[in-house]
Simulated assay, not measured.
Amino acid sequence: MAGWKTAWRSFYYAGAPEAADPVLAKGKVALLVIDVQNTYLARAADRASLPPLEQAREAAWDGFHDRMHGTVIPTIARLIGRFRADGNPVLFARIACLTPDGRDRSLSQKKPGWNNLFLPHDSDASQIAPALAPRHGEVVVTKTTDSALTGTNLRLILANMGITHVACTGIFTDQCVSSTVRSLADESFDVILVEDGCAAGTMELHLREIEILNRIYCEVMRADDLVRYLPA
């Protein structure tokens, strides 16, 4: 893989100059962890007991879970530790409905199919994975939308905190992460998307979306690259 400045180029940026180094100031760069919740890490206790179609569906997610536990969660945990140690804010977003029947969910979370999400805010399924649990005093926004900005006051929170750069991690690259990155860019935040801190249902979907977002809405880099630019 080439360096981040020339990697993950789409048609639009195939011949463009290298990206510039980000200038990150202490206290003005935040880490945002998006939707790494228990519901997405749950697996069938006994796959062999499932009907054949459900077994196949469960097996199709093996790559996602391998990436989450082998790459994404360890990467996010390392970044959380670094941001906390340096005094740079860590924020979290999670999907959860506030009403008992879920009628406050956005249309995209009510449509039939995989994205039909009913996650009561106090349920275990809606909680952030324990390996990445927020500390007391860290901001956690609850959303019923894909974008972490659209359905919350996160934009106002970031502005009030003086944040200029947001490093985005989480799931799913091609859904809530993508929607959040685009919203942040539209609100004139500088966005860094941490490639090894994100996952989609498949690597094909992940890489396709990374390429679409790169340079237009964010700068894509890996965690090691980001750490080199972080102010101590």
Rank of each mutant, 00 (worst) to 15 (best):
Thr152Arg: 12
Leu149Ala: 05
Ile216Cys: 10
Arg215Asp: 10
Arg47Asp: 04
Leu50Gly: 13
Ala56Trp: 06
Arg222Asn: 14
Val181Phe: 10
Tyr12Gly: 12
Arg78Lys: 15
His165Gly: 05
Phe83Glu: 02
His165Arg: 07
Tyr217Pro: 09
Cys176Val: 01
Ala200Arg: 07
Leu32Met: 11
Val191Lys: 08
Ala45Lys: 13
Val220Glu: 02
Ala199Asp: 01
Lys111Tyr: 04
Glu138Leu: 02
Val139Lys: 11
Ile212Pro: 02
Asp186Val: 05
Lys110Glu: 09
Leu98Arg: 14
Tyr229Thr: 10
Leu149Arg: 03
His69Phe: 11
Pro52Ser: 04
Arg43Gln: 14
Asp86Gln: 15
Gln109Val: 00
His65Tyr: 11
Arg155Met: 10
Leu50Asn: 11
His121Trp: 10
Thr169Phe: 02
Glu204Thr: 11
Ser106Leu: 03
Ile34Asp: 05
Glu219Ala: 15
Ala77Trp: 01
Thr71Gln: 14
Ala93Cys: 10
Pro52Val: 09
Leu117Asp: 01
Asn88Val: 03
Leu24Trp: 00
Asn160Lys: 12
Asp124Val: 13
Gly102Lys: 04
Arg105Gln: 09
Lys5Met: 14
Phe83Thr: 01
Leu119Lys: 07
Ala7Asp: 15
Arg103Ala: 11
Ser179Pro: 03
Gly201Arg: 07
Ser188Asp: 15
Asp190Cys: 12
Asp35Ile: 04
Ile192Trp: 04
Val36Glu: 00
Asp174Ser: 15
